[in-house]
Each structure stands twice: as structure tokens, then as C-alpha cells.
Computed example of a mutant assay.
Amino acid sequence: MTARPADATGRPTLEQVAEAAGVSRATVSRVINEVPTVDPRIRAVVERAIAEIGYVPNLAARSLVTRRTDSMALIVSEPPGHTVYETPFLQRLFTDPYIGRVTAGAQEVLRPRGIHLVIIPADPPAHHMVTRYLRQGHVDGVLLISSHGADPLPQHLADLGIPAVLSARPGRPVPVSYVDVDQQAGARLAAEHLIGRGRRRLATICGPQDMPAGQDRLAGFRSAVATRLGVEVPSVQGDFTRGSGEAATHRLVDRHPDIDGLFVANDLMAEGAVRALQERGHRVPEDVAVVGFDDSIAARESHPQLTTVRQPVEEMAGEMAQLLLAQLRDPQRAARSVIFTPTLVIRQSA
């Protein structure tokens, strides 16, 4: 029997696949839409016909059947009215190694499943646009990088019933799954290492204190130093950028010129801190030992390379993607948290 002609665009049609495979159009549709009840032998025949003819499914039509877009959003959010950062949002977004590591880790899980990852910046002017985009069903779910307690987006996602997983513990209770590292334990590792290196005049450059990570890293470091040395640790706040670490170090050394050990709440700020110390004639680590947090590429690009607390960001992002896929399979699945254990990576700075 002669196969039916292709459509007006010249592309093979569903009917041609059905005729080549000797099955009904409905059976081909079930195979394409991955209906699990199709007999494996029939599925193999249909898939072979698809390959031979070169049929490409109409994704728009398929989404009407499956109610899936095969796309997920990776949203990097900053809450409206947020004024802590000195550096513009988009500049931080595209210079922070953490974002790239999250993207890579999520892609490792999603790409083999044919799922696209759409990266969406959600700075204050764009919040309402992002919410509208999500409500219109352009993606199946959201991986959300949101670290500020004042950010309304996690609660909005929960209220709208949009499947989502957060990249860190939310600043306030919200029924959304999240993946995090034990932040306080990581800061304690930094304190123990500096003290073990014989450093006694310790200080820290902390992250923004409206962020749980910033709060926990400061609390963990201060608690460990108080327990071991019985002293209070001076601190200066940065905004997790290299420039803020450099500026904070100058302020800190102006106030406390005798410090000999410094814990910096992320690697970008720590790289800036090393640069500032060297500009002031301090040798690292001979005069001031420096420990960062993250084990990002900034730790290896610093001179000297940074001793740092490693959080396994790629593995954590992969777990986020797995949690989101599980939620899509079972929408009634209860929110859960997964906490990873940090480790210390020793290099030249401490």
C-alpha cells in the first residue's frame, strides 16, 4: 500500500507512521506520549517506523495530551525592596560561580530525560512577569534559587500549586521541598581549622544577614570560636561578591589590625579578601590565614589558592531535580528536605 503523503510542510505525518508500522493512529499516539500500557513489541515496531520515516512529534500537540511541556525553570530570585547588595542583580547573577554549578548539576539529571532547563532571572522589576509566566503553564516545575527571608516567591509557588524545589532552607516556613548543606557545621570546620593552625585573633566577613546561609555561617563560626577560645569574633558584612569582600577586609583591618585568622562566608568574597590583605602588606597565610566557603572556581583562581569549606553544589542541584521529578510523578507527595554534609578542602591560604 502506498503511504499517505506528508503534510503541507513536507514533514512525515502520524498517519504515515501508523501505516508503516501496521497499527492505528491512536496506537502511534500512545507510543509517542509514552503511555505505559502499550505492548513492548508494538512499541518497538512503532519506534522503528518513526526512525525510518523521520517523523518528529508535534510537541505542542503532545503537550495538550500529556499536560507537560518537558521544560523546567531555574529561577534566580531576589525579593522586591531588597537593598543589601551594592552590586546590580544581573551582574551578580552572571559572575557568581554558584549559579553555573547549580545549572550543571540540574542538567546532569534533566537532559538525559529530554527536559529543557530555562534560566529565568527574577529581580524585583521582573517578579510579576515571572509569576505570570509560571501561571501560564510554560514549564512543568521550578528549581528556585531564593535565599532571602523576605522573598515572597516560594510562598507564591506554594499558593499557586506549582511544583517547586528550593536551593536552600527558606527564611520562613513554607510547604516546599528544599536541598541545603549544613551551613553551621561548615563554619565550625573553618573555625576548628584556623584554631588548629594556631590562630587566635580571629575575625569573619559574613554574608547578608537576611539570608539563612549568611546567618548560619556567622552563627556557626562564632559559636565554635566562643567554645574553643572564649572570645567574641568581630565581623563585617559583605554581599557575597568579590568587590564586597575586598572592601569589607579593608574596613575590618582598619578596626582590627592584629587579626591573624579570617573566615570569609564565600569564596568570591575570600578571593577579594586575599587581594585586600596583600595590598596592605599582609602575607597569606603567614600573617593572616584565610578560609572561604563553597569550593568554587574562585577558590582555585585565588593566589594563593583558598582553603575552603566545600558544599557539593552539583550533587545538591541534582537532588533538587530528582525531588522535582518525584513531585511531578506524585503531586500529593509531601514536601521534604535533604541536607548534605560539608567537608574542608585544605589548600595554601590556611
Rank of each mutant, 00 (worst) to 15 (best):
L328S: 01
R199N: 04
A335C: 09
L323P: 05
V288S: 13
P5E: 08
I145N: 04
P312E: 15
G149P: 00
V84C: 03
M269I: 04
D239S: 12
T87W: 01
Q155M: 07
S296G: 02
V118F: 11
S235Q: 02
D267C: 07
A203H: 08
G114S: 11
S349M: 03
A317K: 09
F221S: 00
H250A: 13
S63H: 12
A248W: 14
V236M: 10
A104G: 00
D7M: 10
V345Q: 09
S223R: 15
G292L: 10
T83W: 13
R197L: 12
A168G: 10
R41C: 07
G105N: 01
A299G: 07
R347L: 00
G137Y: 06
R300M: 08
V174Y: 12
P342E: 02
E192A: 13
N58F: 03
L252E: 07
G114H: 12
A106C: 00
P312I: 14
Q184Y: 04
A247K: 00
R101W: 12
E34Y: 08
E192R: 14
R283D: 14
G243A: 15
V28C: 05
G161W: 12
V130A: 13
D140Y: 06
R280C: 08
V38K: 11
P285Y: 15
V225K: 01
T131F: 10
A21T: 10
H256R: 14
V23Y: 12
V338S: 14
G214P: 02
F94N: 04
D7A: 02
V142N: 10
E279F: 08
S63V: 01
G214L: 07
R188I: 02
D7T: 10
I42H: 08
S235T: 12
V23F: 09
L144Q: 06
T13K: 09
P304T: 05
S71Y: 01
G186S: 13
E319K: 15
A270M: 04
R30T: 02
P152F: 03
T9A: 15
Q332S: 15
T308P: 05
S337Y: 04
G161H: 02
N266V: 02
L59C: 09
L202Q: 13
D330E: 15
V65L: 06
E108P: 03
A26M: 09
L202T: 13
L93T: 00
A44G: 10
R111Q: 14
S244R: 05
I346A: 05
T37P: 08
S29L: 00
Q278Y: 02
I32F: 02
Q16T: 09
I259E: 10
H116K: 12
T249V: 06
V264P: 03
F293G: 01
G54C: 02
S147K: 04
R333N: 04
A104F: 09
A73V: 02
I195D: 08
E78M: 11
T343V: 09
S244H: 14
R347D: 00
D140K: 01
L153Q: 02
P5G: 11
P152D: 06
R300C: 05
L344S: 09
V338H: 15
R30P: 05
A21V: 10
